Simulated assay, not measured.
Amino acid sequence: MLSNFVVIPVVLVMTIAVYTDLRSRLIYDWLTLPGIAYFLIYHAFTHPDQWTTYGLGVILIGGVTLLMAVVSNGQLGGGDIKLFTLVGAAVGWEAGLYILCFTYLLAGLIVIPIWLAAKVSGRQAAGREIPLAPFIAGGTSLLLMAVAFI
């Protein structure tokens, strides 16, 4: 069970990240970097015996998304990488991997039909960049709901 000291800040960060990503295609460092530090410090004091889970969340989730950004030639932005890293710091590496999967499943369910419709109609999609923060927030919300009902 996640504490309100985790859930509320995650929801707040995701709300701001979605807004800024949709508005300007940016997820700011002033949002993600203090959030990563907050969650690592919070877990160091409240769960010192499990702190490695959250530290590995930063390294593993951040590292996987960084690798994806490198492989995709920059299709995944730095703000997205840091937002995923924040998620890893907040919920740990295991839950972070679920959020990573949920995020890309949601993105695929939404973006692939739009892309196919644009391809069939002969129109170009309205911009090639898709903001990922709404999908990261959706994947995180799915995990938070699953944890709440278990």
Rank of each mutant, 00 (worst) to 15 (best):
2 L>E: 00
2 L>K: 04
2 L>D: 02
2 L>Q: 03
3 S>T: 10
3 S>H: 04
4 N>V: 03
4 N>D: 08
4 N>C: 09
5 F>T: 08
5 F>A: 11
5 F>E: 04
5 F>G: 07
6 V>Y: 00
6 V>P: 00
6 V>N: 01
6 V>H: 01
7 V>P: 01
7 V>I: 11
7 V>W: 01
8 I>E: 00
9 P>S: 07
9 P>G: 08
9 P>F: 00
9 P>Y: 03
10 V>M: 00
11 V>D: 02
11 V>N: 02
11 V>T: 07
11 V>I: 10
12 L>E: 05
12 L>C: 12
13 V>N: 00
13 V>I: 12
14 M>H: 01
14 M>K: 01
14 M>I: 12
14 M>V: 13
15 T>R: 02
15 T>M: 08
15 T>H: 02
15 T>V: 11
16 I>A: 05
16 I>F: 04
16 I>K: 05
17 A>I: 09
18 V>T: 13
18 V>W: 00
18 V>P: 04
19 Y>S: 14
19 Y>V: 15
19 Y>A: 15
19 Y>C: 13
20 T>M: 13
20 T>F: 12
20 T>G: 12
21 D>S: 08
21 D>M: 06
22 L>Q: 06
22 L>R: 08
22 L>H: 07
22 L>C: 10
22 L>D: 09
23 R>F: 08
23 R>M: 11
23 R>D: 11
23 R>W: 04
24 S>V: 05
24 S>T: 03
24 S>K: 14
25 R>C: 09
25 R>T: 04
25 R>Q: 11
25 R>I: 05
26 L>D: 03
26 L>N: 08
27 I>G: 07
27 I>M: 12
28 Y>W: 15
28 Y>L: 13
28 Y>M: 13
29 D>R: 14
29 D>T: 12
29 D>I: 13
29 D>P: 08
30 W>V: 13
30 W>S: 10
30 W>T: 08
31 L>Y: 12
31 L>A: 09
31 L>Q: 11
31 L>C: 08
31 L>K: 13
31 L>R: 12
31 L>D: 05
32 T>M: 06
32 T>L: 05
32 T>Y: 06
33 L>I: 15
33 L>F: 12
33 L>R: 12
33 L>S: 06
33 L>D: 07
33 L>N: 05
34 P>H: 15
34 P>G: 11
34 P>V: 15
35 G>C: 03
35 G>P: 04
36 I>D: 01
36 I>H: 00
36 I>A: 02
37 A>R: 04
37 A>L: 13
37 A>F: 11
37 A>S: 07
38 Y>C: 07
38 Y>H: 06
38 Y>M: 08
39 F>L: 07
39 F>V: 14
39 F>N: 02
39 F>T: 08
40 L>Y: 07
40 L>W: 04
40 L>A: 08
41 I>E: 14
41 I>N: 06
41 I>G: 06
41 I>P: 00
41 I>C: 11
41 I>Y: 11
41 I>L: 15
42 Y>I: 15
43 H>T: 14
43 H>D: 07
44 A>M: 15
44 A>D: 14
44 A>W: 15
44 A>N: 11
44 A>C: 13
45 F>V: 10
45 F>M: 12
45 F>I: 10
45 F>R: 02
45 F>E: 14
45 F>Y: 14
45 F>K: 01
46 T>K: 10
46 T>P: 04
47 H>T: 14
48 P>E: 14
48 P>M: 14
48 P>C: 09
48 P>R: 09
